[in-house]
Amino acid sequence: MKDISFLMSKSFLAAVLLLLSVASLFIGVKDLSPLDLFSLDQSQRQVMLISRLPRLISLIIAGVSMSVVGLIMQQLSRNKFVSPTTGGTDDSARLGILVAMLLFGNAPTMGKMLVAFVFALAGTFLFMKLLDRIKLRDAIFIPLVGLMFGNIISSVTTFFAYKYDLIQNISSWLQGNFSLVMSGRYELLYISIPLVVVAYIFADKFTISGMGEEFAVNLGLNYRQVVNIGLIIVALVSVVVIITVGTIPFLGLIIPNLVTLMRGDHLKKSLGHTALLGAVFILGCDILGRVVIYPYEIPIGLTVGVIGSGIFLYLLLRRKVYE
């Protein structure tokens, strides 16, 4: 454990993030090298400002915010396997987007977001209510319930999508994809930044709430209010990411687990690392997806899913070693 703990230090993660960010800016079909930076011609400048930079920014924001909300959700549900993917949030958000499209046609993105947010929030609340009712609090059982719950919602979405011939739109939100990110189409993601800041301010309260309602009330905390604020952050961030880049499965599951395994469950101690590692991981996956079958691209949903689940399995099996 000692020998690899430097991998989890903030300065190491920040250095890797910087390195990957630079790499991300200069990988792509259009030739662009760091040396060109000071003598960009018209088309190079356009590629940089319209495509490469927005892509980098959206990757970092999505990586940071999805990891952070995953951590919050695990803390509030007191279960390491709960995340927007396994708690019905993503599925509810997609249903919301579909409903928005059916009701308002080509509603502006902001309107779509609000409807999807209401659905995502309602779905997440419903899942948390289900959790309260479940007597068997087995670690594996709960995310299974979440996945089933999500699939039920998903089936409703698919049904109406078929009926109204929107199935292609639906699948575009299923697979996260950053290749379509361009200036003018990703700015909604900025909403996540203040939400992550709020999460940091509430870090202690989330940690205390994660110890259970009675523990929190004993310390004079308004438990319900803290949980509600947490779930609002989770739902809003998930919706914003799905609308702009699509679903990035299991990111909110893998990253917080990696971090808390080494740094414990105190959010103050793990939030910063979670944010950094989330950005590093998603950038790495995106770059990999861009170079593996160059000049074509593998969608990020796929690379994150494959690499992430591999890492997660490995960590699960090694878990005893850390204790």
């Binding site: 007191r78 202690d204 940690t207 205390i208 994660g210 110890m211 259970g212 009675e214 523990f215 310390l219 004079g220 905390l221 808390t260 414990g264 469950d265 105190h266």
Partner: peptide
């Protein structure tokens, strides 16, 4: 019910006593 498997250190837990 406080006895749950959380990864908090003893000192972190005791520190929560000062939260109020």
């Amino acid at each position: 019910s406080n006895q749950i498997g959380v990864r908090l250190t003893v000192k972190e837990l005791v520190s929560f006593g000062r939260y109020p």
